[in-house]
Design a protein around this nucleic acid. Structure first.
Lengths: 223, 223, 223, 223
DNA sequence: GATGAATGAGTCTTCATTCAT
DNA sequence: TATGAATGAAGACTCATTCAT
């Protein structure tokens, strides 16, 4: 994450540059604190006081970096989205593995790098606030969900073209493929956070099954 | 209690009365209005004034039926859940169709009777508010999600026992089977509500694909 | 207490008149309930709902007899005051006992007929609400307190004239004489109501001492 | 904490700041304003808006110092009581004057330092609200009234032991001695505040008479 | 008359935002 | 910069009052 302050303070000569970096990191720290709070309590349910406290600064400091709560929220989404975008595309697009292997890689990588991180809460958050912040929802959809779907669709389409997968509705299949990942990630930030883990299934176990099922489902009717 | 639509008072011609008594129907009307508002704006983001207005009553009237906002919310969940519980279990459990057909029936019925209704928003709502209302989340999990999972798991297990399905991790497969349904239902109340329907896939199309895929995935390896 | 309704319902011939009296008594019952509530919780702290409930009628019924809360309160004071006015004056003014005996009679009678009754709470109530209802306070002062003081002052003045008491500041002495009675009566509706009775002194004991002290204090410097 | 008068900010010339920090003095100022308002209108009849306005701050500021109206009220009683406690005890307990002189001193001091101050209204207030705040009433009784009674009882008992006073019921006499003081103090915050001063007697005049009477009443029967 | 459901102005309380320090 | 005291608009909730039944 590369969130920089609005001003780059001129480094005093002789000063150890390490301390300057602290100031540059402030906004990112604030956004991290905000993400955690927003995910847990929702937008309206989160007080700026809480965000400030959990970031270890005073309430007023937030206003040095963000003009108001709404902009803080939007910045949060914007900045959090950037790293998501760069994660998979390159890696998977240029891989020369076979379709089934690519699917396995995608599922595992997605979970590892997104589903299991606190960023997954972002997805829940945005869905919950879509009614209040349509532009944010659109932004997230256009920048994250749509590309992600396209990526998966690409994998499947490539597999079909190569004869590794049977003919299916590519877009619909992409949705089906992604759904268990997304839902499990969201789940982790709602029910499972609230101590409801009894019957909850271990993600690895579910993902392994999911991979097997989807691979079997896509097997071409060869022979 | 079935949550009714809002306000259709058969006012006789003449001067319209400033208000009228509807002790019986009121609670359901209020809950219906509350559901719509809560789903759209979240718990904290919804004003009681709005709920009241959208139910066609004044603010004070809400307090005749519910002691406060939180109890209104809990009542909403409680009352909405009851009809959900009775929907599928009986029908599917006693069916004598084959496994693949049962799955198709389940998916279609689930979508028809839950996923495509406004009650689906309840799921999103509760997930969003799980952090603020753990008891509500637990209630919903115990009364709706868990039984639903068990129902699906039962279908799969029966299919395996009958040799209609191959051996799989039953619970994990149930999750995988349900996820696209749930996510699509949630989706409908977030992104798609916000006018983001461009790339959105028609539910029927996705569900049809989902059914095909899961049926294929569960096909026993015989022959 | 002779509180009558605003309308005297014409007695149907043949009807047992006892039942009609019920309706006539309504307002008095309502005022009695109101007095108890107002004394306990103050004017603003008392809900009309409570008064109605404690009188065994519905809220709306109050409005059949009193136009609003304030008028109910004023009626309460007005009606309660009437019996107070007639209590002592005649009896004591026309007595031919000696001064010390009259004082003893006054103290005991006052306590018996006013201080120990629920009407004593009225005094506390009016004092508490004097800031909000100056007219009521003035009314009570002019109709109750002032005459009462005058009565006591008259007793003392007569005693002095007869040589039963020594020369004193008559009005000031009247105040001193009445104060312990009033304060004890008020006390009974505040601290002692709240379960604070531990160190509280039995009224009879205090009054007996009070009588002795005031008699001794007024003893003429005879011999 | 001594409850201070309201607001005398030494604003420098130039543009007056919209508000200024006074973390130290604020609580006392707020309590002073609250006392005045509560005494005049009672607890329920006082709006926090009014207290704030009369303290020269905004409504929200009250909540920086007190969590809610009830706690503000309790803090008011608590803080106001402390100075009362320290007023008389030391002075009178260690005096070596004779009994009659001590009584005169007590009456005059009590009036000067309590009865004639705005704190006297506190007594009326607490009596009026005893029904709604029993704990407050008990606190006030235990911390103020009871010690005060004990102090007076001590004076009388000492006088009896020294032969300066005749044998009397000590506790009852203490009540009788204090009553005119308390009632006059309460009076000043009810009827006399409402412009009913016509027939009201000057406190000095009444207290002088009270002192004479009680001294005469306690005179030992010797000689 | 009597009831109590419905109303809405009025209060308490919260919290995003400002600004003196 | 950073702080946190102060603000005031907004929202939850109450309750005197009205009015359909």
């Amino acid at each position: 994450m590369t969130i920089a302050g609005p001003h780059d303070s001129p480094v005093q000569s002789g000063q150890p540059p390490r301390w300057e970096r602290r100031k540059e990191r402030r906004p990112a720290e604030l956004l991290a604190a905000a993400l955690a709070r927003f995910v847990e309590h929702g937008y309206a349910g989160t007080r700026l006081d809480d965000i400030a406290a959990s970031a270890g600064v005073s309430k007023g400091t937030l206003y040095l970096y963000f003009p108001n709560k709404e902009e803080l929220f939007k910045a949060l989404v914007r900045e959090s989205v950037v790293p998501l975008l760069e994660r998979f595309s390159d890696r998977l697009a240029s891989s020369d593995e076979t379709g089934p292997v690519l699917i396995e890689q995608f599922v595992n990588t997605w979970w590892l790098e997104f589903g299991s991180t606190r960023l997954a809460g972002l997805c829940k958050l945005i869905m919950a606030e879509a009614g209040n912040f349509p532009e944010v929802a659109r932004f997230f959809h256009d920048e994250v969900i749509q590309p992600n779907n396209a990526l998966v669709a690409g994998l499947i389409r490539r597999g079909i073209e190569r004869g590794e997968f049977r003919q299916v509705d590519v877009e619909a299949t992409a949705h089906v493929l992604i759904s268990p990942l997304v839902l499990k990630a969201i789940w982790a930030h709602s029910f499972e956070r609230s101590g409801i883990q009894a019957e909850s299934i271990d993600p690895q176990r579910m993902l392994a099954t999911h991979i097997q099922l989807i691979q079997a489902a896509l097997l071409p009717p060869n022979r």
